[in-house]
């Protein structure tokens, strides 16, 4: 006869998942930040960059949105070491490989929201900024981006929520984050229902916290004309 759920939770499942949670955060945190940075940069380049740069940036987005994330994760972890350039190859440890995959994929999606935000700002404001003597770069950074970012924030937030969930794919390349840890515990204990339901609660908790933080950010950036739609 197995131990009751609460005992299983407090002695084995809980501590295991909490350790996995930290690893998940180590993967998610940098992925979110890098992804946002890539998304912002690529989004701006896709709208305001010189034509060849736009072309490359659009290619990047098509590639990373058009292939399954699992394939990308496997590529960075399993395939990259076999690519030798001048006799040198790059071998990524599991966690860095996961971060690279998630950041690049997330950046591609983020850039879509940023691009949409940029395009939603009327050209007239750029003209007004240039008429005041601003350079194109100044017009973009001090006039267009702050507005585009506010408009893009709900979409970007959504993407971060997705990222939290697809971080579970890191378990496929031996990262012992939440899902990896849960799988191990399930194998050893045969208590699949309890383990995976509890795992679900952990993700729900992560997503809830992230959603709350994003709300705070939106409220903090809110100015008349750019409020969060109250539902």
């Amino acid at each position: 006869m197995s131990t009751p759920y609460l005992e299983f939770l407090s002695t084995e499942l809980g501590p295991g998942l909490v350790a996995g949670l930290w690893t998940s955060l180590v993967v998610i945190g940098p992925s979110v930040l890098l992804g946002a940075l890539i998304g912002l940069t690529v989004g701006v380049l896709r709208v305001y960059g010189p034509v060849p740069v736009r072309f490359v940036a659009n290619g990047y987005v098509s590639l990373f949105r058009g292939t399954p994330l699992v394939v990308q994760v496997f590529f960075w972890y399993f395939a990259l070491p076999f690519i030798k350039i001048g006799g040198v190859s790059i071998v990524l440890d599991p966690i860095p490989a996961a971060i690279v995959s998630f950041a690049l994929c997330s950046g591609a999606y983020q850039s879509e929201y940023i691009r949409g935000g940029l395009n939603s700002i009327k050209r007239g404001q750029i003209r007004a900024a240039m008429a005041l003597g601003m350079t194109t770069r100044q017009a973009v950074t001090s006039v267009v981006l702050p507005q585009a970012f506010r408009r893009a924030l709900p979409g970007c937030g959504n993407e971060i929520v997705y990222l939290i969930k697809y971080s579970s794919l890191a378990s496929l390349i031996t990262v012992n984050e939440l899902t990896g840890t849960a799988t191990t515990i399930a194998k050893n204990s045969w208590r699949n229902i309890e383990v995976f339901c509890t795992l679900g609660v952990f993700y729900l908790f992560l997503v809830t916290v992230a959603t709350g933080l994003l709300r705070l950010l939106e409220d903090w950036l809110s100015v008349p004309g750019f409020e969060r739609p109250k539902s």
Binding site: K122, G124, A128, A131
Partner: peptide, 13 residues
């Protein structure tokens, strides 16, 4: 050279 536009073009944020 100051410029005033028909539709104001204020910076909305």
């Amino acid at each position: 050279v100051g410029m005033i536009f028909q539709d104001f073009n204020l910076f909305d944020h």
